[in-house]
Design a protein around this nucleic acid. Structure first.
Length: 430
RNA sequence: GGAGAGGUGGCGGAGUGGUCGAUCGCGCCGGUCUCGAAAACCGGAGUAGGUGCAAGCCUACCGUGGGUUCGAAUCCCACCCUCUCCGCCA
C-alpha cells in the first residue's frame, strides 16, 4: 500500500512512476478524496473536543447545584454526540474508500528498473551454462519414455480434473529429492532458516501480501473463509505482521517448502500439457525481512541463492530484470530466472525474486525500531522462489534426457536418491 | 463438538464507572558513580491521525464492532482470537 503523505508531497512523481508501469495517473483522485477525508476528520475532532469539554464541566455544574447549567451542558453533549456520530461515519467511509483505492494501486518501480510495456522489454543481466547439443530431437518432459510411467495426467483428471498430476515411482522420488536438496542448500550454505507453515490462512494474511483485494479470483477459499496460499510468501512474510521488531533482529531470512494453490484463472489454454502450470504444486520459497537501506543488497543476495540452485543442478539459465510493464503488483524490482527447456527449445520462468520495499510492510503494519532509537519504521520485505519444485523437475528431466529414452540425473541429487543416478527408459530408478 | 479461563503499552503484569493514556517490573534512552564496564541511584520515553513555521494544541487507541451513561480499559450485547480440560481423531 502507498504512503498517502508521499503522494501528497509529490503527486507528480507518483503519477510519473505509475505511468512507467503504463497506468494512468491517480494522484488527483486520491488527493481530492484525501482532502475531503481530512476536512471531515477535522470537523469530527472539533466536535469531539467540544463534547469532552462540556462533559468535564457538567460534573462541576452538578456539584455546585447549578441545574440550569447542568441541563444546558447535557443538551450540548447530546447534540455534539449526534454530530460526532454523523461526521465520523462520513470520515470513516471516506477513509475506507481511500484505503481501498490505495490497496489496488501497484507498487512503484525502483529507479533501476527499465521502462517497458511487456516481457519483450525485459533486460537480460546474465546467463549461465550452455544449452546442451542433442544428437536427437529432445522432447518435452511428459513425452520422455522413462518419465511416462511416472507422470499420469489421466488418473489425475479422474480425481481432480485438468491441471493436476499424479506422480509415481522414480519421478516423484526425484521431485522429493529436488525439494530436499534445495532446502538443505539454503539452510546450510545460504544461512536461511527453515520454516514449516500452514497453507490455509486468514483473510488478513492475504491482504498483507497483496493477493487481496485485487486478485481474489486467482486463489481458492474454503467454505469457512480460509484461503489456500498461492505461495508461502504469504505465510512467511506475514510471520512479522503487526510486529515491532528490534533492528538487531534483522535481517530475518526464511525458507519453506509448501504446497501452493492457484486457480490459474485467465490462463485458460496456456501451458495445458505437462506439469508446467498446475492448480497444486510445490515450491521452496525464500523470504527476507530487512531494513530499508539493506533491501536492495538483499535482493542481489536472494537472486544469487536461487541461481546457486540452478548452477548446482547444472541447468542452463538466464537472469533477467523485469521491465516496469511486466512486474508483479507488489514489486519494486524483480529478477526472473529462466531455465533452459530443450523440449520447448526456449527458456521458461523457474524463479522470480522481488523486493517490495515497505509496500507489504505498510499493509501488514510490520515495523522495526531503529538501533539509533528513533521512531519505528516499516521493514522492507523480499520474496523469491528457490525454486519452483515442479518446474525444476521438468528442467532436470528435459535437460537430462538421452537418446534411448532414459534420463541422467544431476550429481548433486544422487545422495538423495540412494546413490541412483538415472531413470531408465522403462521408468525405473537405476 | 462440550465446558471453562483470558485478550491492557516492546515484553510481563496491575487496574472493575470520573484528573487513567493508564501503577509496577523487565527491556530501552540520557545522566551520576567508575580507568572502563556491571551494579546502584536520578531522570526520560507509547502508537496513530489531524492542525500549526515551530513550541505546541486537538482527537483516537486497553482484541473488534455496537450499546448503556453527562462520563467506559472498567457495565451490557455480538463477533474474532488465544489458552486449559473433556470428547473425537491423522
Amino acid at each position: 500500500m502507498h504512503d498517502i503523505r508521499a503522494i501528497r508531497e509529490n503527486p507528480a512523481a507518483f503519477d510519473a512512476a505509475l505511468s512507467r508501469r503504463g497506468l494512468p495517473g491517480a494522484s488527483s483522485e486520491i488527493l481530492a478524496l484525501d482532502a475531503d477525508r481530512r476536512a471531515k476528520i477535522a470537523a469530527a475532532e472539533t466536535a469531539a473536543a467540544d463534547q469532552n469539554k462540556a462533559s468535564k464541566e457538567v460534573g462541576a455544574a452538578k456539584a455546585r447545584g447549578d441545574d440550569a447549567e447542568f441541563e444546558r451542558l447535557r443538551a450540548l453533549v447530546a447534540e455534539k454526540k449526534a454530530e460526532i456520530a454523523r461526521l465520523t461515519a462520513e470520515a470513516d467511509a471516506e477513509d475506507a474508500r481511500l484505503r481501498d483505492l490505495l490497496m489496488r494501486i501497484p507498487n512503484l518501480p525502483h529507479a533501476d528498473v527499465p521502462t517497458g510495456k511487456d516481457e519483450d522489454d525485459n533486460v537480460e543481466i546474465r546467463a549461465w551454462g550452455t544449452p546442451r547439443q542433442f544428437n536427437f530431437a529432445p522432447v518435452e518432459h511428459f513425452d520422455i519414455p522413462g518419465v511416462k510411467p511416472g507422470m499420469d495426467f489421466e488418473t489425475a483428471a479422474k480425481l481432480s480434473g485438468s491441471r493436476f498430476v499424479v506422480l509415481k515411482g522414480a519421478v516423484i522420488r526425484v521431485h522429493r529429492a529436488l525439494a530436499q536438496f534445495m532446502l538443505d542448500t539454503h539452510i546450510t550454505e545460504h544461512g536461511l532458516t527453515e520454516m514449516w507453515t500452514p497453507v490455509l490462512v486468514k483473510e488478513d494474511a492475504m491482504y498483507g501480501t497483496n493477493q487481496l483485494p485485487k486478485f481474489a479470483e486467482d486463489s481458492y477459499q474454503t467454505t469457512n473463509g480460509w484461503w489456500l496460499i498461492p505461495t508461502s510468501e504469504v505465510t512467511l512474510t506475514n510471520t512479522v505482521a503487526g510486529d515491532l521488531l528490534d533492528e538487531t533482529a534483522l535481517p530475518i531470512r526464511m525458507t519453506a517448502h509448501t504446497q501452493c494453490f492457484r486457480s490459474e484463472a485467465g490462463s485458460a489454454g496456456k501451458d495445458t500439457s505437462g506439469m508446467l502450470r498446475q492448480h497444486q504444486f510445490e515450491k521452496v520459497e525464500m523470504v527476507s525481512i530487512t531494513t530499508p537501506d539493506t533491501s536492495m543488497a538483499e535482493h542481489e543476495r536472494m537472486t544469487r541463492c536461487a541461481e546457486a540452485i540452478l548452477e548446482k543442478l547444472g541447468l542452463p539459465y538466464r537472469t533477467i530484470v523485469l521491465c516496469t510493464g511486466d512486474m508483479g503488483f507488489g514489486a519494486q524490482k524483480t529478477h526472473d530466472m529462466e531455465v533452459w527447456l530443450p523440449g520447448q527449445n526456449r527458456y521458461r520462468e523457474i524463479s522470480s525474486v522481488s523486493v517490495c520495499g515497505d509496500f507489504q510492510a505498510r499493509r501488514m503494519n510490520a515495523r522495526f525500531r531503529p538501533a539509533s532509537g528513533g521512531k519505528p519504521e516499516f521493514v522492507h520485505t523480499l520474496n523469491g522462489s528457490g525454486l519452483a519444485v515442479g518446474r525444476c523437475l521438468i528442467a532436470v528431466l528435459e535437460n537430462g534426457q538421452q537418446a534411448d529414452g532414459s534420463v541422467d540425473l544431476p550429481v548433486v541429487l544422487h545422495p538423495y536418491l540412494g546413490g541412483k543416478t538415472r531413470i531408465a527408459a522403462d521408468g525405473t530408478l537405476q
